[in-house]
């Protein structure tokens, strides 16, 4: 049941990527009607002057025009948080923002988080805590986490849960997402009134994650 072939070249280590993009149409979205509006968006520090269909959401503009597909579309109604980005430093759902209305704003997306190839501490914590499975909600979760820290809302454990509740994760990674946030913010898990701390800590994966980090196992493959 084996066949042998020969070939040359070593495999690259990059993640699977989309085919090379057609840079000629960088800015020439095909279907923009005459009523297109000029807007300037500064995205991840870079200014873009675009002519947008007034109907286009910020999310679609980021994804389709600027090819920043890190922000995801899950519902287009503000219900899932997959499209979370920062606008002028605050978390928003980009599916409910019209791009025209964002003229002159500064937008930060997941692509703008890792400075100089170094992961943001929360990105690293997500890796270490395994705070995702399919990864689809992950850019939104991370932007929400970064945003809540920037907005000064990382107060205590209960508030963390609530602050993260606008970002659905159907894979159910919440306990690990919380663990990643706790680690990044230094917030301790809330003690449980009746059942004792230890069990909760274990269940919350806190010790496990600390151990992973200590043993370096968390770095495997990262």
């Amino acid at each position: 049941m084996s066949e042998t072939t020969t070939g040359a070249g070593a495999p690259a280590r990059e993640p699977v990527r989309a085919p090379a993009r057609d840079s000629a149409r960088d800015d020439a979205s095909p279907g923009v009607p005459p009523a297109a509006h000029p807007v300037r968006l500064t995205v991840n520090g870079e200014a873009h002057d675009l002519a947008v269909d007034p109907r286009a959401t910020l999310l679609d503009t980021l994804r389709e025009r600027l090819r920043l597909t890190g922000a995801k579309k899950g519902c287009e109604h503000g219900s899932c948080g997959a499209c979370t980005v920062l606008v002028d430093g605050r978390r928003v759902v980009s599916c409910l923002a019209l791009a025209v209305a964002c003229d002159g704003r500064e937008v930060t997306t997941i692509e703008g988080l890792a400075a100089g190839g170094r992961l943001h501490p929360l990105q690293q914590a997500f890796l270490d805590a395994d705070a995702f499975q399919c990864g689809y909600c992950t850019p939104g979760q991370i932007m929400s986490g970064v945003g809540l820290m920037a907005e000064g809302r990382a107060r205590d454990d209960a508030s963390l849960r609530d602050e993260l509740s606008g970002n659905l994760c159907r894979c159910g990674a919440y306990p690990n997402i919380l663990a990643a946030l706790r680690r990044t913010t230094g917030i301790e898990p809330a003690p449980d009134a009746t059942r004792g701390d230890d069990r909760l800590r274990a269940a919350a994966g806190v010790d496990e994650i600390a151990r992973d980090a200590r043993d370096g196992a968390g770095q495997g493959g990262a």
């Binding site: 979370t84 978390r91 759902v93 409910l96 945003g147 809540l148 907005e151 606008g166």
Partner: peptide
């Protein structure tokens, strides 16, 4: 009300 993102908007 709503979510933190919606409350910001």
């Amino acid at each position: 009300t709503a979510s933190p993102m919606v409350r910001n908007m």
